[in-house]
Design a protein around this nucleic acid. Structure first.
Lengths: 209, 209
DNA sequence: TAAGATAATAAACAAACTGTCGTTTTAGTT
DNA sequence: AACTAAAACGACAGTTTGTTTATTATCTTA
């Protein structure tokens, strides 16, 4: 995919720009930052920025696109063999296995993810993440969403509900200082989704509101 | 709260600005719009804008603040008597009563809500909505979140999960063309929260993943 | 309905940011 | 060490910004 060996100066510059973007998103938000802000924070010449990106929107797009692509490679394509592994082991320890690589990835890209999903982040990226999550969580069994003979709610509301719920927990996790390991977050989130949030809270599953 | 009778010219101007904001959020997003864009779209003089708002951020803040305040008045303060009403009627038809006024309000302010919660909207507003929802949904029984002796997950993850899930369904509802009535959305969302999303999908509640 | 009040317009202003370009300097690659 | 490409520098016209002036239009209320 990448043919060129890459000049060290380029990677340094791009790293600096990316770091500046993250810092400035958290400091003042994407909408309030100027290209000048970015280049000053990155300690590079303004012209250099324009030799790499069209404008700040282009920068934002490319950062997001890169994240999404990496996630598709590392998570979506990995699902089949994950499921295969689950079938092998047979014990009940691994029903949360699918989300784990996701949370590991989020952890590895914490600073950017935190900025993009935070209060000064980008609502458009949240939409992309929701789409990705819907795909990752339901790809393997679309029939769940489609057959719906005995579904109590329209399927698209179901996937919206679950995907957004995941985003919410991810945001809470990234912002918090408790630093649970990826496996623990996978357990927490799966517990609420499978048993229902209220059951997970310690209430009964069906009656009691 | 409002002492002044209000000049008609002022309300007309403010309405035009508000409408322009909504249109431009959906057209190009808040970050990409200029004050000039707003005033041109609203057909007012640029100076007039600055006599009402400091800048576009001030405009955005005030629009959001107004929404939140109205919601607090119409929904939060209405909860006690809603619960009282539920106790009176006793039949099982009304466990979804609390969210109904919320969805009615969202429906009444659809255009602005859709813009603010949409892909070109404001992530900060989503955070405010999440806080509001947590308050509205859990205010009446905080103990659920606090006692947690038999809770399977940390309480703050539970409220994040549920509040975000609600936002997701609301977004889907506002964007869709199906136009379910507020009562139906309240039923859908409560069903998933109470029984668990997977149960609502037509699966068993606990085993089957 | 007329008088007084005030909101909106029009036009101009310096300041800042934008995107682009040509030249020079710096630094990495071979 | 020589070659090459990237980064820095400085300048440019074009926008947008936020403010201010004088003027016009319109609402309120007496």
């Amino acid at each position: 995919m990448n043919g060129k060996p890459a000049d060290l100066r380029v990677v340094r510059t791009k790293q600096a720009i990316r770091a500046a973007l993250i810092a400035l998103i958290e400091e003042k938000g994407f909408e309030a930052m100027s290209v000048k802000d970015i280049t000053e924070h990155a300690n590079i010449n303004r012209g250099t920025f324009y030799s790499h990106y069209e404008d700040k929107f282009d920068l934002m797009d490319k950062c997001q696109q890169q994240l999404i692509e990496e996630m598709e490679i590392k998570i979506i394509r990995n699902i089949p063999q994950l499921i295969e592994g689950m079938k092998q082991s047979q014990n009940g320890t691994a029903p949360f296995a699918v989300p784990v690589p996701l949370f590991e990835f989020l952890h590895d890209n914490k600073s950017l993810m935190k900025a993009l999903l935070g209060p000064r982040g980008d609502a458009g990226f949240q939409v992309k993440m929701k789409e990705f999550l819907s795909q990752a969580l339901f790809e393997r069994n679309k029939d769940v969403l489609v057959n719906g003979g005995n579904a109590l709610v329209p399927p698209h509301y179901l996937s919206s509900y679950i995907a957004s719920a995941h985003i919410g927990v991810i945001q809470e996790w990234l912002n918090g200082d408790t630093n649970e390991p990826p496996e623990e977050i996978a357990r927490i989130i799966s517990t609420m989704t499978i048993n229902g949030p209220l059951f997970a809270a310690g209430l009964k599953g069906k009656d009691q509101a």
